[in-house]
């Protein structure tokens, strides 16, 4: 029982990371109906840039720089991959371009930082804290707090500032938002910047807990997509719950079956949810008007 509780606890931290990346998928999907297939690579780049910077400065100072880098990377993806495809209304186009940008980023990272996974120095003590006989890493607490903080910050921005409301308006109805004088093209670019920024932040949060390397992004991005689907692409609470489900499923599978299979439950869940209830367990299904 104690082991199980411990597994759940470790699953929570992992799940919040998935939730945070999935949140990034939601941001771009809301404004433009597109997804960045390179979301995992945005995370990886954030972690790698963070790793380089951390050699020269304090972890906390590095974070804002990584955020700026993430935002710029998001803008690049949107301008190079998504915008031209949106203009020609080509779904095939943006799927292919974001995939190809993803493999380019991965390859560049391999050439800049090498093929090997390295450890990311932890900014917090690595000795676990004890709560009721359960062990928790300080870094895990930081992950949960950081992920919640980002989601909360975006939520407050959307609710309180007129620019945030403009973003919500664009997700509601892009044409009508244009009629309000909102430059919806800029809003979409912004949502990509924000989305990649979130991913880069997730990268520096998760890096001290796992190994960091050019290949770390691909599977994380895919599993986060599973979370976004389980939670529903339009449900804020959904990604947190979905992330937790997946995180816990993964740590328990890893322990009770084999670590080799730990990625399987998430992917199976993705296939099952899409086969049975594509709007997600928490999303609302909409009747498509013809």
């Amino acid at each position: 029982m104690e082991i199980f509780a411990q597994l759940i606890l470790s699953g929570i931290a992992l799940g919040m990371i998935y939730g945070l990346i999935a949140f990034g998928y939601q941001l771009t999907f809301a404004t433009s109906g597109t997804l960045n297939f390179g979301q995992g690579e945005a995370l990886m780049l954030g972690a790698m840039v963070g790793l380089t910077l951390v050699g020269h400065m304090n972890y906390w100072l590095m974070i804002p720089l990584v955020l700026v880098f993430g935002a710029l990377q998001g803008v690049l993806v949107e301008r190079l991959g998504v915008l031209p495809a949106l203009k020609t209304k080509s779904e095939f186009g943006w799927i292919m371009t974001t995939i190809s940008l993803a493999i380019i980023f991965k390859n560049v990272a391999e050439n800049v930082w090498g093929h090997d996974d390295v450890t990311f120095p932890s900014p917090l003590p690595t000795a676990p804290l004890q709560f009721f006989g359960l062990r928790v890493l300080p870094m895990e607490i930081l992950v949960v707090a950081g992920a919640l903080a980002v989601m909360l910050a975006v939520e407050i921005f959307n609710r309180k500032s007129i620019y945030g409301k403009a973003v919500v308006a664009t997700s509601n109805d892009r044409d009508a938002a244009g009629l309000m004088g909102i430059n919806t093209g800029m809003v979409i670019t912004f949502s990509y910047a924000l989305s990649s920024m979130t991913a880069a932040f997730a990268g520096v949060l998760v890096a001290p807990l796992t190994l960091t390397g050019a290949t770390m992004g691909a599977v994380l991005g895919l599993k986060a997509f599973a979370v976004a689907i389980i939670g529903g692409l339009n449900s804020g609470m959904g990604v947190i719950v979905g992330g937790l489900i997946l995180g816990i499923a993964e740590t328990t599978t890893g322990y009770y079956i084999s670590t080799g299979y730990k990625d399987v439950p998430g992917l199976l869940l993705l296939l099952l949810v899409l086969a049975i209830k594509p709007a997600g367990m928490f999303g609302k299904s909409v009747i498509k008007k013809v």
């Binding site: 007129i162 620019y163 403009a166 919500v168 308006a169 509601n172 044409d175 009508a176 309000m180």
Partner: peptide
Amino acid sequence: SPEGRRVFSTLSVTDNLLLGAFPRLT
């Protein structure tokens, strides 16, 4: 004011109105 109304359904009435003044507020 477009055909079919096109109000922003997940925003409050006040927020919808404020967005009408978006160019004035920005």
